[in-house]
């Protein structure tokens, strides 16, 4: 197992660490329909991503401390794993005609709404670009984790991890 020095000092994985774990999709992978991005580079006892996937496209196997592996040829991009992952480590990203999209898990109130102008942030929570909310899915099967889709400029597709949280009442 690699030592993940960046993750263990900054709190979020670096591109190198993701790459080493086979978890940084290429721009080709992201083009068109896009792909599921699993950012879970540490061996922890966990596998709800695997059990949530109806296609058998996400595999942890035995022992459950294995890192999850995605078989992109089986993945239908249904997005069920996004809300199932207790680590909130799964997103779906895609790039088409200069626009990128990200489908990500969201557990803060107030929920964003379709049409909202938002700030897209990277893995360290730094603002990278402006974005727009396309949809918010709070289906009951997601068990109180909303799955939000946002659009932003394609140039930032590898950096973007989420949106900035709106604060209750304060700035």
């Amino acid at each position: 197992m690699s030592s993940n020095d960046y993750l263990k000092t900054m709190g979020a994985p670096s591109f190198d660490e993701l790459e080493r774990a086979g978890m940084l999709p290429s721009l080709a992978d992201l083009a068109g329909r896009g792909c599921v991005c699993v950012e879970c580079v540490e061996e922890i006892p966990c596998n709800p991503c695997e059990t949530s996937c109806p296609q058998g496209a996400l595999v942890v196997g035995y022992p459950i401390t294995n890192l999850p592996v995605v078989d992109r040829s089986k993945c239908t991009l249904c997005g069920l794993c996004i809300a199932a992952c207790p680590g909130l480590a799964i997103t779906i990203k895609s790039v088409e005609a200069g626009n990128a999209k990200i489908r990500f898990p969201w557990e803060y109130l107030p929920l964003p709404a379709a049409g909202d102008e938002v700030e897209m942030v990277d893995r360290l929570g730094e603002a990278v670009c402006a974005g727009k909310i396309l949809s918010v899915n709070s289906a009951a099967k997601n068990n109180r984790t909303a799955v939000v889709t946002a659009a932003f400029p394609a140039a930032f597709v590898q950096q973007v991890a989420s949106i900035r949280r709106k604060r209750h009442g304060t700035v």
Binding site: N4, L7, K8, T9, M10, G11, A12, P13, E39, C40, V41, E42, I44, C85, P86, G87, L88, A89, V121, D122, R123, L124, G125, E126, A161, S162, R164, R165
Partner: peptide, 18 residues
């Protein structure tokens, strides 16, 4: 010198800007 919690948990907090 190193964070203790699972990386997926620290990443959640970090990307919220903490």
């Amino acid at each position: 010198p190193r964070l203790g919690g699972y990386g997926v948990h620290t990443a959640k907090v970090r990307r919220a800007g903490v």
